[in-house]
């Protein structure tokens, strides 16, 4: 159900972005008014570097505010979020229906805010000279449960009969959820005989040390290891696309470019330090996000997201399946219309 929503997101937000936002809604400009308190951030380890950087910069400006950041994983973060133990939850995928229900059961409302893009990169060994690109259908055939693909020649007959060794995210990560949903078509289903790890560095090492390897992990892990591994261009029906900052941002690399989110608890957003932190997050993302190795949204979209926060719009645009993209577009344009 949610399968199509992942790809739609980039388009929806880009279309809505054309409406344009009227300036940054985030300048609180009240540095004189001393903020204090504690903001608990937890969730995806993928988003952790971004939230860390924001915590670092924000607490430098507001020394009396403490912003500790933890990384319990997207799912673990949402569990604590629903339990009111977390103010801001980092997520590398949209919130799931079951998690929305858990929040509702505890009376927790949330504001969903996209903060950056990440590209899932499929990488092969540097010595692999036969793979020019892979189509989405080929990827599905390789990774789906009970896949019959054992050798590269099973993917395309012209490729050598070298055993294909697979490396990918372990089951506990949002990356795993996203990849299986976008490539295999249903969340959580994947062939069982691949090497899984929660540590992307392990996956990079695996691919770098094995001529027949194919692995998937975050784009920034590929960028840091370009000398050892090669990114495979992915053809999702619009020709082979190489993952790069541009193709990830523009949505060309869809469906393997994914949005990263923060979810803010509605009642926490009433605390001045939390509101200031989230506004700081959104208004500084354009500069800080690239420093952490991720791809920022455009300034216009950050304005739209900031407007969404300013209005304290609760709920997820990903609820209710594939028509979601439209709904998000409607919400954003409505917000901009009223500004």
């Amino acid at each position: 159900m949610k399968g199509s929503s992942v790809g739609v997101f980039a388009l929806a937000i880009a279309v809505a972005g054309c409406g344009g936002g009227s300036g940054s809604a985030s300048e609180n400009g009240s540095a004189a008014e001393a903020l204090s308190g504690e903001i608990v951030v937890d969730g995806s380890s993928t988003v952790l570097p971004i939230s860390e950087a924001m915590s670092e910069e924000f607490t430098a400006e507001h020394p009396d505010v403490r912003v500790p950041v933890a990384a319990s994983g997207t799912g673990g973060g949402f569990k604590k979020f629903a339990n009111k133990e977390v103010d801001v939850s980092d997520a590398s995928r949209p919130i799931k229906e079951s998690e929305v229900e858990a929040c509702a059961a505890n009376g927790v409302e949330f504001i969903e805010l996209p903060v950056a893009f990440d590209g899932l990169t499929l990488a092969v060994n540097a010595q692999n000279d036969w793979v020019d690109h892979l189509t989405l259908a080929e990827l599905k055939a390789i990774w789906e449960p009970n896949s019959q693909v054992r050798y590269w020649s099973d993917v395309r007959p012209s490729w050598p009969k070298i055993e294909i060794k697979l490396y990918g995210a372990g089951h506990d990560s949002g990356t795993f959820d996203y990849f299986t949903e976008a490539v295999v078509g249903s969340e959580g289903s994947i062939r069982s005989d691949y090497t899984g790890s929660e540590d992307d560095n392990t996956l990079v090492q695996g691919v770098a040390g094995d001529k027949g390897a194919l692995g998937f992990f975050g784009f920034n892990y590929y960028v840091e290891n370009k000398d050892k591994i090669r990114a495979v261009p992915i053809d999702a029906g619009r020709g082979p696309i190489v993952p790069s900052e541009e193709t990830i941002r523009s949505g060309e690399y869809s469906p393997l470019s994914r949005p990263l989110f923060i979810y803010v608890r509605r009642d926490a957003a009433d605390r001045p330090e939390v509101a200031a932190f989230v506004e700081f997050y959104l208004s500084n993302a354009v500069e800080i996000v690239p420093e952490t190795g991720y791809v920022p949204l455009t300034a216009e979209i950050y304005d739209l997201v900031a407007a969404r926060f300013k209005k304290r719009t609760t709920g997820s645009v990903f609820q209710g399946g594939s028509q979601v993209g439209m709904k998000f577009e409607e919400i954003l344009s409505k917000e901009t219309g009223e500004q």
Binding site: D42, L48, S51, E52, E56, T59, V67, P68, V69, A70
Partner: peptide
């Protein structure tokens, strides 16, 4: 420690046993 939710990024020192930590 990770299971009980200890933090990965902390830019303050704990001043007592009830403070958050890494």
């Amino acid at each position: 420690l990770i299971t009980i939710g200890a933090f990965a990024f902390v830019t303050f020192l704990p001043s007592g046993p009830m403070d958050k930590f890494t």
